[in-house]
Nucleic acid binder design. Structure first.
Lengths: 330, 330
DNA sequence: TTGAAAGCGCTAACAC
DNA sequence: GTGTTAGCGCTTTCAA
């Protein structure tokens, strides 16, 4: 027994295929009674419209492509979920593409999506104009970066990082380090700028270190660098790096938050599963995902190239404390 | 300017559309010279075959559905990546569906995939026969569970857990706890069985605790229970739970590995980013993903209902140490 | 409100 | 090796 089609249903109901089609795509234009009969039959036969066929004629596939640089990075899974959820709410499915940390591969990957998807959500912070070329003609939005002519939704941590800075200042820290993320990363620059901006208006000296890889090992390296300074606190680029810093500090005999305060960024799962739990800036991932899909939708329908900014939120936890001065040093 | 089709290329090259079609689908059957001309033109025009159209006639969409229960759980991202990668190698794309921890929603979600995908990889450990019904007629494979009539690839931790047990025994532990995962989870049962089987053949007493939720908080709860026992070591259901146990132990003034040894399972990112790094059983995720896609492929082409078992591997790290007896207790 | 017919872009016989 | 033809399942004019 083959899958039901509008024809099998039409035949079973004694109507034409177009009526069946309409019963699904524009229900209100078909006679109530007929419509119900059709729907009933469809349910009985387990009918599912063939999206490929529909896509062929409408030119829309009902799918959106999602490009992530590295799904293994704990920042992305919740975002992927949010996007998938938002897409589902619009009756769209998500085609996931993981670039496996290779920015160079991205344009190629994007190209392969051409024609398979109605639009593209680019959650990758790196790579640049090649991407725009590859997306030629494909509506796209980017997350946490800017590409000229492409709508963007960005998480603005400026305000929250300033708050984090004040928090450190209030705790008595007078010399704090900025552990930079990869220089190619838009977020890394944005965060560094925000922190510098805060430092200028504070009584605190800022020691700019890095860039370090945005990874646990990057954090380990950062910790080593950190131990050579007189800082009593640090901003890590993100939570993953912060975990590395934490481990490195512990190795170096420095305990957090007694001897040293650390603030992360993003509030990924890691941030609340390490000890001490990380003071961090939470990214509003659900809203980011929702906004991205919404923006994509609007842009696909001729909407303007907007930029949506969503604020990160400072979350105070256990990795920051009073500046007691470092008891020991490396 | 519209997208190129086999027709526009055919016209530009002075050949028929079928020749163009063949130049892509079965290149060797068309004259080398003509073929090259076609390919050149295609490249020039940025031609991308329309998969929907192809799917309509061949009945294959070139997509595989991937159902995960909770992409937010650190076990899944690497698996998703592996599956995506394996699919890409077979020129297939991955449609990701996150069940958001609702096993009840899964059959519904699967149903929506009907006709959109050529096959289904079910990475969800829960829910049951409704799933099989929903997948009606859709080739599927499951990961880490068994459903009658459905090919499976499972990670067998029996051997590695036995090794972990011996490791604890060698370290002098004589009373160890098993912190069970959710009773609905196939993996949880498998692991519990493996550990019981090891314990029976050892000089070690096993204290069976739980079930606990497979989460950080579940681990916290497990730690509380643990502190009431005289155990000097424990198997956590997975690394995430182990992290919770670790945090709970620290809170209770018990330090790991000095006072207590802990072994996790899966070797997710968390396992190597906490301090101390977790001794755990690593799941061969890349091979799991590869095997799942391969199995799906073979099964779709009429292959038998096989089961592929892949062994987990014991990874010794810093969370296990000599049984010194607990110094303090709650 | 409904039906007939054309066509979306592609593949797969089948002839040449 | 290549062209012709039919048709995959659906939507969408256009008439009735």
């Amino acid at each position: 027994m083959k899958r039901a089609t509008i024809y099998s249903i039409a035949q079973a109901c004694g109507v034409s295929a177009s009526t069946v089609s309409r019963a699904f795509s524009r229900p209100h234009v078909v006679n109530v009674e007929v419509r119900e009969r059709i729907h009933a039959k469809a349910r009985e036969l387990g009918y599912q419209p063939n999206k490929a066929a529909r896509g062929l004629v409408t030119g829309r596939t009902g799918m959106i492509g999602l490009l992530v640089p590295d799904i293994t990075n704990p920042f992305f899974p919740p975002l992927v979920r949010a996007i998938q959820q938002a897409a589902a709410a619009r009756d769209a499915a998500v085609l996931l593409v993981d670039a496996e940390e290779s920015a160079a591969a991205e344009p190629q990957l994007v190209k392969r999506l051409q024609g398979q998807v109605d639009g593209l959500v680019i959650a990758s912070p790196r790579s640049s104009s090649p991407l725009r070329d590859a997306a030629q003609g494909l509506p796209a939005v980017v997350i946490n970066r800017r590409i000229r002519g492409v709508p963007a939704v960005i998480c603005d941590n400026t305000y929250a990082l300033r708050g984090a800075g004040r928090h450190l200042e209030d705790l008595g820290h007078r010399r704090v380090a900025l552990l930079r993320g990869p220089s190619a990363s838009w977020s890394a620059r944005q965060r560094a700028d925000a922190i510098h901006s805060w430092a200028r208006s504070s009584r605190t000296a800022l020691v700019d270190l890095g860039p370090f890889p945005a990874s646990f090992d990057g954090g380990l390296a950062a910790a080593t660098a950190l131990l050579r300074t007189k800082c009593t606190a640090a901003f890590a680029f993100d939570d993953l790096m912060a975990c590395g810093v934490l481990a490195g500090l512990v190795q170096g005999g420095v305990s957090v938050p007694e001897d040293f305060s650390l603030v992360g960024c993003d509030d990924v799962l890691l941030a609340s599963t390490v000890t001490p739990q990380l003071t961090t800036v939470a990214a509003p991932v659900e809203r980011l995902g929702e906004a991205a899909v919404d923006l994509l939708h609007r842009h696909s329908n001729g909407g303007p190239v907007e930029e949506i900014r969503l604020d990160g939120e400072l979350v105070l936890r256990a990795s920051t404390g009073p500046a007691a001065g470092r008891r020991r040093s490396a």
